[in-house]
Amino acid sequence: MKTTNVLITAALLAAGICANAQETLPKQIKAGKERVKARKEIRLPEIDGYKLLKCDFHIHTIFSDGIVWPTLRVLEAWEEGLDAISITDHIEGQPARPAIEKGNHNNSFEMAKEEAARREIILIKGGEITRSMPPGHLNALFVKDVNALDQKDYMKAIEEAHNQGAFIQWNHPGWGVDSIMWHDVHETLFRKGWLNGIEVFNEFEWYPVALNWVNEKNLTLLGNTDVHDVTERLYDFRTTSHRPMTLVLSKDRTEEGIREALFDRRTLVWFYDTLMGKEDLLKKFFQASVEVKPVHHTTPERIYRSIVNHTDVPFLLKRTDKNANGYPETIEIPAGETILIVLPKTGSQPVTYQVDNMIISPEKRLQVQLF
């Protein structure tokens, strides 16, 4: 009996000790911390007093065939350093989703606009008129009511967008077709003033013949993601610093400034390490980005100079003057960095270089003179 009592007493003491130990344990132990939500600031020059605004005018949400909520598109754009986006959900192409009521094409804009205001993201109301080729897919930007574009006759839908003051771009002209063609309907739209620009770069590809159309017909050049997934899942930001985008030369950081610039054809396209656009704009971009410092050291045969790149765009140069002996055949000026150049003390000047990653047309690259 005594042995039993001793065992019971010991068990009770152990239980009491365990209870006291439980009471002294913390409620929870936190490991790690949430990722800091910060905006990436992209360094670009001003050109002729215009601000270069970073824009993506072709993105989707769960209200068409995307997989994300509209507010997430705003958060992505803010973190990635953009200034403006347009959510362009398909007007005709809305897959059946039991939990989402189809019918109001303004939904995605309405749901995102408050977050856009908090993040200082310019949110442009838009929609994608989604038809087979021709005419293909067209984005209508700056519309007042996307619902009014939901019409059986695509010409009436495009006319309605035009009547609302929309900027109308032809999306990915090479997507889903065997050959890229400028159809009669595109000529009609162009002559009516109902076709204002062409998306020459889309997601991962660009269309050389479409760039020729932009140059020949003096249309606005655009490049966008057409993202349906999360942008960090679509693009590997370990190998590229930014999403593809349209750079808009705007008088100010406003929706109206962007609209005016698009209609005035003041755009460049930036994808991976490449810039595309009109020759005069590319030249001004290069001149505003690259600074060639004065000679700081000389020897009997050589001079030493530094070249500074003030932007987040690298430049890849190739010498075109075959007789410029002693000058570097290629020059790479990394983004945001300074390089040292060794040149002959006497030689043929100026020396012309081709900037391989600044595209004017499928056959033409920007020519510059550094020295």
Results as ranks from 00 to 15, higher is better:
residue 323 N to L: 14
residue 61 T to P: 06
residue 88 T to A: 04
residue 220 T to L: 07
residue 330 T to K: 09
residue 75 L to V: 11
residue 139 N to M: 04
residue 187 E to S: 12
residue 236 D to T: 11
residue 195 L to S: 02
residue 57 F to V: 02
residue 94 Q to T: 13
residue 256 E to C: 07
residue 273 D to Y: 04
residue 237 F to G: 08
residue 348 S to L: 14
residue 288 A to D: 06
residue 146 V to P: 04
residue 327 Y to P: 03
residue 272 Y to Q: 11
residue 69 W to T: 03
residue 143 V to P: 09
residue 128 E to H: 05
residue 78 W to I: 05
residue 228 H to K: 01
residue 279 E to L: 01
residue 311 T to S: 11
residue 150 D to S: 11
residue 253 R to D: 15
residue 284 K to R: 11
residue 251 K to C: 05
residue 71 T to A: 06
residue 308 V to T: 11
residue 96 A to Y: 14
residue 314 P to R: 08
residue 289 S to C: 02
residue 90 H to Q: 11
residue 258 I to G: 03
residue 157 A to E: 07
residue 149 L to K: 09
residue 83 D to V: 00
residue 180 I to H: 03
residue 118 R to F: 08
residue 347 G to M: 03
residue 65 D to C: 03
residue 32 G to E: 07
residue 243 R to W: 10
residue 168 I to Q: 04
residue 152 K to A: 15
residue 73 R to K: 06
residue 116 A to L: 07
residue 164 Q to V: 07
residue 191 R to M: 01
residue 4 T to L: 14
residue 225 T to N: 03
residue 34 E to T: 14
residue 99 A to N: 10
residue 103 G to A: 09
residue 269 V to W: 10
residue 358 M to Q: 09
residue 357 N to Q: 00
residue 333 I to Y: 03
residue 70 P to N: 02
residue 371 F to E: 11
residue 58 H to P: 01
